[in-house]
Design a protein around this nucleic acid. Sequence first.
DNA 1: GATTGATCGTGACGATGTCAAGATGTGCGC
DNA 2: GCGCACATCTTGACATCGTCACGATCAATC
Lengths: 220, 220
Amino acid sequence: MPRAVPPEPPLPATYHHGNLPNVLRAAAVEVILDKGLNGFSLREVARRAGVSHAAPGYHFGDVRGLLTAVAIEGFHTLHDELVRSGAGIDDPIERLKAIGRGYVRVAIEHPAHCDVMFRDDVLSADDPALADAGLAAYGVLEATVAAIADRYNADLPVQDVARLCWSTMQGLVELQSKFVSLDSMLSRTPTSFDEHVDRFTDLIINGLTHRQSGRSRIPR
Amino acid sequence: MPRAVPPEPPLPATYHHGNLPNVLRAAAVEVILDKGLNGFSLREVARRAGVSHAAPGYHFGDVRGLLTAVAIEGFHTLHDELVRSGAGIDDPIERLKAIGRGYVRVAIEHPAHCDVMFRDDVLSADDPALADAGLAAYGVLEATVAAIADRYNADLPVQDVARLCWSTMQGLVELQSKFVSLDSMLSRTPTSFDEHVDRFTDLIINGLTHRQSGRSRIPR
DNA sequence: GATTGATCGTGACGATGTCAAGATGTGCGC
DNA sequence: GCGCACATCTTGACATCGTCACGATCAATC
């Protein structure tokens, strides 16, 4: 769990305890986890952090400010995880698959962050730090696609493919709940998150007018 | 604009004016459009409809109830538009492309509905009417993919491909704003919604390890 | 024409976001 | 060592919101 919370000094617990922003951010994540983004409230965050109801407002200005901080943290985590997932894998196609699985791993392990990261309506979307963090994570993906173009197909529209991959993963994250309810409604055996990722990446890479490669799972 | 609002009787405007639910639903859409899903409130809806602040609660029980009604209406519209988009197109692959463009057309023309349709946290996700409406829309997509399998590739995993397409379109809808800001940040010429759809469907259909077919646009 | 039920309004309560003003520590110059 | 400016946090207040109970109003039916 890299960079979940910046290295925390032993918490002086004084009046001005110095790292309230970090504590509040962590508390916000827990509130989102417990009550959902809908039941989220600054006052609840303040209660869990053991401070007054207006303390969050001082540090983050706004409810959007706090959620934006959570989103930025999420993008940093995503970036680190994508880099980590692709490290040491030579074949760029395999690296792309690994990155895809890294994406959903972040979505699974940090659901609170992911609930916020793309919800421009609840966060201050014009925050440059937010844009930077998102751009950095996207850069990892685009670089991998560029490597695929280098090795396999120079005509590959790198930008389009990268966006396709991102859109697909993002849509999957959002629709996964619908898919499981759809599976249960049609009494099919439910398809897991990871399985969806593998099948999607296979489909994208092989193209659906050509013969499928048969759900090859990537060896860990 | 099929089934935007059920055929409206001339509005008696009396005390019990009979179709308040429809009026409230339309008002809710306008509030979402104006203030965003974040600034949405039942009282604002009531104000626009010219009724008391508790009237929405009577008909929809909950704020979730009203938003769920909007989402159901959105899924109906989506279903109708998907059917309409694919009608008369023989080649199922071309039909799939047309459906993809129908999807984003709905997203563009009914942004308020689409803001709500997949946000399970703000609506009562266990409403069977909601599930039915979503399933009906999805059925159009799956049927088209099944037609592709029939004609081109019997081994095609229909369910997976259908979900891939849906995920991709849904992700695109959600990320489009990020893409344009990304374009402007890198000072590229912005890519339109429709262009994204065409490129994505081309990429999915052709597969990214094979030669691209060069952004063929479908003649209308 | 009275009654029953659906429909809608009124009033109230607790909770929330946000602001202003005050309280409380911290660090810096001297 | 001391006072002062500042950052940090609390307190209090206000408008708004969702939701509930209760009352008012209308429509249809017997």
